[in-house]
Design a protein around this nucleic acid. Structure first.
Lengths: 208, 208
DNA sequence: ATCATATTGTTCCATTTTTCACAATAACAA
DNA sequence: TTGTTATTGTGAAAAATGGAACAATATGAT
């Protein structure tokens, strides 16, 4: 099994680059074209493909359409991914309104919040009481949740949705959550991303 | 020079964990406490510290307050970091309203947008025309920008702010930006994060 | 048909990152 | 004081990752 997160991220980037190339009218692509497009190396492109049994043609490169098919299948993009958002604050609401997911086959089907004032069953993405999350997750077979609640509420919310059958959480709470058995957690911590950036900006400024 | 991004991210996590421990009344901490708190290993905690010349006491662990001081200094948190947001759409606006940055010494001082309808000079975080970005960046010595514009506008916006003296960009546009000389770009790609999560959820589901 | 060329697929090597293991030693107990 | 114990700090081993190189080979030219 592949456990290299970076490798999977690269597959996503290849996929995105391929759509751009396709839109420009290209039909086939070489490993070094893709490498350029994602700022990588041609060896790595080929090795990434080889890991997943994707092969091209000697001297002929890769056929973009079939390559996209394979990548999309690996990335689970051959089916609509239904996702819920837990927490309808600033970030949560923005994610529910964000249209960028649609073209990626990711559909936010509902939001959940504890605050009655946030509930709105008739909005484009309905916002429901957290109490109803468990039933909703089961009824709609939801596997992925985006967690955008304040840090104090994060672990509790995690426990609830994990117990309801959620298999993967994209966590925006500024806190490392304890991974529950059978549930994968990816943390997107904006504060930490910024700190990281600040660190490297400072370092490169000092050393120049 | 330390170029290991993961290492710096771990420093941020240690720092956050230390604040939590401090809030619980702890005064000193051992490497394995910290390891538990961030789901890492004690060796790695010690090695990370050793890389930055942070030392503790044999049998006495680390003094939390002095440890925090050192980490904060490394992470550039001993001074207020002024940040601008470029793009006042859903994500950009949510970030401007997000209060989580404040306690991290990160202050969003202004937003910028091309759309005149988005301009609001009197809001808590003023939203100004993109035209004014260059002057603003120079006047206020801004080094860090958060980029939250649609993908088509991303490269152009990047060029503008890089040319204005921005040294680091946290990019939310779903597109790998070409790194301009002297400007570091960290990408936060929500679609890719979700795809990644979906991949690993699928894989672990299949192998069980 | 033969040759030259371009590009893949994979093996091997270098580098980076993580983990292990243990000597050094500070704190504490008797 | 002496001994015991807990914990650090680090050097060496191991694992993971990335990159270079090249044999294999399909394509197209002559």
């Amino acid at each position: 099994m592949i456990t290299n997160k970076n490798c999977i991220i690269r597959l996503s980037r290849y996929k995105n680059a391929l759509y751009r190339l396709q839109a420009l009218g290209f039909v086939k692509v070489f490993s070094d074209n893709l490498a350029d497009a994602v700022s990588g190396t041609a060896s790595q492109v080929r090795k990434d493909f080889s890991i997943f049994g994707i092969s091209g043609n000697k001297k002929g490169g890769y056929q973009i359409d079939s390559l996209l098919e394979k990548l999309n299948s690996i990335l689970g993009k051959d089916q609509l991914q239904k996702v819920i958002v837990v927490g309808a604050g600033h970030i949560g609401s923005a994610l529910m309104r964000y249209r960028g997911f649609e073209k990626e086959g990711i559909k936010i089907v509902a939001g959940f919040d504890i605050d009655p004032a946030k509930i709105n069953r008739s909005s484009f993405v309905p916002v429901l009481p957290l109490d109803e999350a468990k039933a909703f997750i089961k009824t709609h077979s939801i596997r992925i949740a985006i967690l955008a609640v304040p840090d104090i509420a994060a672990q509790q919310a995690t426990d609830i949705i994990c117990a309801s059958g959620i298999k993967g959480i994209l966590n925006f709470a500024p806190l490392g959550l304890k991974g529950t058995e059978g549930c994968i957690i990816n943390n997107v911590n904006l504060e930490i991303e910024l700190e990281n950036l600040i660190y490297f900006v400072n370092v490169t400024e000092k050393t120049r």
